[in-house]
Every structure is written in structure tokens, then in C-alpha cells.
């Protein structure tokens, strides 16, 4: 581990996002660095949950911040940076998730073949397969539904999720109920079409 890893990750500056965004718009590298350090981890963790691959999550997180860097959100239309970052992250992450779906299905077939040739399914393999099934299910939902579930699971309030998805907070309950029902349907369909492992 490098020495810099040991440094505290919190930003030394307690300037608000809005102030830092103003700085970023004026080309301040320091403002960008502060925003990056402040928001990187949650964004990366969200993407990791979605993608299940550290490298890929980090790559997409870099892309998210590149978008911020290239085009700092305009002050009039957008003032919630966290919501903006989560929105961009879920969009990019969802695209990456879908793009990875084919690859994952191929991996899964290969894994299954391997498992048939060895003694019994080992717990690690099962857990891995389960995660893959969950991600495949997310990939089959609409991007909004997938984002909704992941963000809600992250612990965002209805108001926060609504800000990310740019919908009314009043509609979150209904959207969530639908998304969860759809997730269940798709997940079970995937299980039926895949292996016989029951849902736990």
C-alpha cells in the first residue's frame, strides 16, 4: 500500500459543492480535486454493486468524473451534485452492465461446464453465480428501474432518488413497487431458464 493511501480521504476544505462547482466552472483544478475526493467512493461503490468488477467500476467512475470535468453542470438547471453524479453513474453503469451481459452469459455457460466436471458445486462458485444472476436481472430491467433499485438499496431517501431520476418524489413509491415486482419476475424467469437452484 502506498503512503498516500494512508492519508485521510476527507477533503480538507469544507466548502459546499455549489461553491466548488462555481470554482470548477472557472477552471479551478483544486475545486475539481476536492469534489473528486469527496464523491469518488460512493460513486465507485455504487458502480461496483452494479457491475461486480472492481476494475470496471473504477473505469466507469473515472468516466463519470470526466463528464463532470468536461462539463460542469450549469448552475441554473442543476444544483444537486450528488444527484447528478449518481444519475450519470447509474446511466453509464447500466450501459456497461448491459454491454457486459453477453460476456457474462458466456462466462456462466463456461462455469457451468466446469462445475459439471468437478465433484460438487462449491459455495464460492454458487455465490458468484448468484451475483451474476442478480446483475443479469438488473440488466433486463429498464435503466430507470435498475437505477431506482440500486439507489434505494444504497440508502437514498425517496427525495434523493427522485432528484437523481428527475421524477417527482410522490411517484417513487409506485415506481419502486413496480420495479421490485419486475425484478422478482425477471429473476425467477432467469432461474427457470438457467439452473434449478431455488431462490434462497
Amino acid at each position: 500500500m502506498d503512503a498516500e493511501d494512508l492519508q485521510p480521504e476527507e477533503s480538507p476544505l469544507q466548502l459546499s459543492d455549489a461553491v466548488l462547482l462555481d470554482g470548477l466552472r472557472q477552471g479551478s483544478h483544486e475545486a475539481f480535486a476536492t469534489l473528486f475526493l469527496r464523491h469518488y467512493s460512493p460513486v465507485r461503490d455504487l458502480l461496483y454493486r452494479l457491475l461486480g468488477d472492481v476494475d470496471e467500476a473504477e473505469d466507469v467512475a473515472q468516466e463519470v468524473f470526466l463528464k463532470l470535468y468536461q462539463r460542469p453542470l450549469s448552475s441554473e438547471r442543476e444544483h444537486n451534485l450528488r444527484a447528478w453524479l449518481y444519475r450519470v453513474a447509474t446511466n453509464l453503469g447500466y450501459n456497461a452492465l448491459r454491454a457486459g451481459r453477453r460476456r457474462q452469459e458466456r462466462d456462466r455457460r463456461a462455469d457451468r461446464e466446469v462445475r459439471q466436471t468437478v465433484a460438487g458445486p462449491d459455495a464460492l462458485v454458487l455465490a458468484k453465480e448468484e451475483r451474476r444472476a442478480v446483475r443479469e436481472t438488473l440488466a433486463r430491467l429498464s435503466s430507470q428501474q435498475a437505477a431506482l433499485l440500486v439507489l434505494r438499496y444504497e440508502g437514498l431517501s425517496y427525495a434523493e432518488v427522485a432528484a437523481v431520476l428527475q421524477v417527482s418524489p410522490r411517484s417513487i413509491g409506485t415506481m419502486l413497487a413496480r420495479a421490485e415486482a419486475e425484478f422478482k419476475r425477471q429473476y425467477l424467469a432467469g432461474q427457470k431458464g438457467g439452473t434449478d437452484e431455488a431462490l434462497s
Binding site: E4, L37, V54, A57
Partner: peptide, 18 residues
Amino acid sequence: LATLNCGPESAAMSPTRA
């Protein structure tokens, strides 16, 4: 979604490195 929880902490880089 909880199955996706095993965080990337171990292998992930710090924000500073990122």
C-alpha cells in the same frame, strides 16, 4: 442486491489514487 455487497475495498484504489 445484498449478494452484491462484498465491497471492493480490498482491491479498490483510494480516492487519492483514483
